[in-house]
Nucleic acid binder design. Structure first.
Length: 464
RNA sequence: GGCGGCGUAGCCAAGUGGCUAAGGCAGUGGUCUGCAAAACCAUUAUUCAGCGGUUCGAAUCCGCUCGCCGCCUCCA
């Protein structure tokens, strides 16, 4: 709210309440959605790694113009329509390595709360009824605009909304409950109230769910920048008019995802979904890495070229962890422990400063640069190796980027590798190449090094 | 028109008053290698969009200019 970095303090010692605005269930997740998921995951994971217990919720908007129109067009009922998209969002979230939130409330399950809120706002004089719709009277809420810094008297009205469709007292007012249309009534999409049959608006949905699950004041409310005005401003107005208390202690907005410098959106006709990229052979992990390693308050300019360069960077990290995991114990190295602590300290210092991921990653790369030559000559004992793996694991709880599965492999794979090595020593290249091909068919790539061959899985699956 | 953000090497990107301007990708040179792949090492900005100012000292502060982007009341 201060628009500056502040030292984070939760309201309750050791616990954090966390809410992020979720997607509307009428389309597949595109990369903008994915960025929001990954950024809020990073925040939650980081808070957890710092010892907080995080109570996190993300809503699904499954009752609004888009979902109703989408269901209409698809010729199915609303719930069937939205639940398909909700399932696809949840599976995308898993693909991206996002830890599941405490809960994923749906707007349609909380309409009674929204009607209740509207009642309270009417009684307090913040809302009025007109032709069967309920509107929020912005002139009654003096603090309006603090989050986005807008000046209501200077904005241009009607630029993105057809004002003729509404009967507000003041065009700046916004809708709380909307009178149901005839076609909605016919399909049973309406809720009976003393003002007639209505359905809720987007803004009141988030207010109802965030305060409903997490109380009057949340510690952190997160979402992306473009929702700041009017959505969050309205969400604040509703919640604060009801409770008289701030809706959230901290607002964290992630920046946009761009394509050729333009916002990824259907108007710009440049939407890329997660599914598209998976179909092109990219993995959820690569996409996570792309979305994660740019600071959350900076725009990301998406391109396939960029994704390709992310892929090689990630490959290098993988080479390092594989070499480390498969390394047989050797002599102890005098300084490696100091390198590890330096990395750990730099990583957490950088992340403490408003999640400075770029700087945090540099700590890791610098460590790898120093440690690679040590690995090359097998100069680590068992304890040192385990210590490094343990610390990388700690970091990985936050980033979920490294592959830290063990080196052990199935006997038949091992046998093939041994066979190839034996053939190589005997210079029987035909047998050696055949073994290499057999391994490739099992999804195993062999990497020859001075310390003997390494192997890695070409596929990407790894459990948490 | 209002409000906000951004501009650092071929690309991505950290740094917001003072050590040699982090790090990644690509490039180049080298090491290793049966071949292949990979890896490893080294190297890559007298300069931070431009101009002017403040200062002993500026990528960092101030002013102006140029370029790009977002939001402006139910696209989310």
């Amino acid at each position: 709210m201060s628009k500056k970095k502040e030292v984070f303090r939760s309201q309750k010692e050791g616990e954090v309440t966390f809410y992020s605005c979720g997607p509307t269930a009428y389309e597949r997740a595109n990369l903008s959605h994915c960025r929001r998921f990954v950024v809020s995951d990073l925040m939650v994971r980081y808070l957890e790694s710092r010892g907080y217990k995080v109570d996190s919720y993300m809503n699904f908007t499954d009752l609004d113009d888009n979902t109703i129109e989408g269901a209409e067009r698809a010729g199915v009922d609303l719930t069937t329509f939205t639940s398909g998209y909700i399932d696809s969002f949840l599976s995308d979230i898993d693909t991206l390595g996002v830890r599941r939130a405490t809960g994923y409330p749906k707007a349609s399950d909380h309409v009674q709360d929204m009607i209740e809120i509207s009642h309270k706002l009417m009684h307090k004089g913040f809302a009025y009824e007109k032709h069967g719709s309920i509107y929020f009277d912005i002139s009654k809420f003096e603090r309006y605009g603090r989050l986005s810094g807008i000046n209501l008297s200077k904005i241009q009205l009607g630029k993105t909304v057809d004002l003729d469709n509404y009967e507000k007292d003041n065009p700046r007012d916004f809708t709380l409950l909307k009178r149901s249309t005839l076609s909605e009534l016919k399909k049973g999409i309406f809720f009976e109230t003393e003002w007639g049959n209505v359905r809720p608006s987007w803004h009141i949905e988030c207010s109802a769910m965030s305060t409903g699950y997490l109380g009057e004041t949340l510690d952190i409310h997160t979402s992306s920048r473009d929702l700041m005005f009017p959505h969050h401003e309205n969400e604040i107005a509703i919640a604060e008019a009801v409770t008289g208390k701030p809706l959230a202690k901290y607002w964290m907005h992630s920046e946009l995802l761009l394509v050729d410098g333009k916002k990824m959106s259907s108007e710009n006709n440049n939407v890329v979904t997660l599914k598209d990229l998976l179909a092109m052979g990219f993995t959820g992990r690569e996409i996570r890495f792309l979305l994660l390693t740019v600071h959350y308050r900076k725009p990301i300019n998406f391109s396939l070229k960029r994704l390709a360069s992310i892929r090689t960077a990630l490959k290098r990290l993988d080479e390092f962890t594989i070499k480390l995991l498969c390394l047989p114990p050797g002599r102890p190295h005098p300084e490696v422990t100091a390198y590890v602590s330096a990395m750990e300290e730099q990583f957490f210092t950088a992340m403490d400063d408003d999640l400075n991921v770029s700087l945090a990653m540099a700590a890791i790369y610098n460590f790898i640069k120093k440690t690679n030559p040590i690995l090359q000559v097998n100069h680590l004992d068992r304890d040192q190796k385990n210590y490094i793996i343990e610390k990388l694991n700690t970091i990985n709880q936050v980033l979920k980027i490294f592959k830290l599965q063990g080196c052990p492999l199935e006997p038949e794979v091992d046998a093939l590798i041994q066979l190839r090595e034996k053939a190589r020593v005997e210079k029987d290249w035909e047998t050696a190449d055949k073994a290499r091909n057999d391994l490739a068919q099992r999804g195993i790539a062999v990497i020859d090094t001075a310390n003997g061959p390494l192997w890695k899985r070409v596929s990407d699956d790894e459990e948490e």
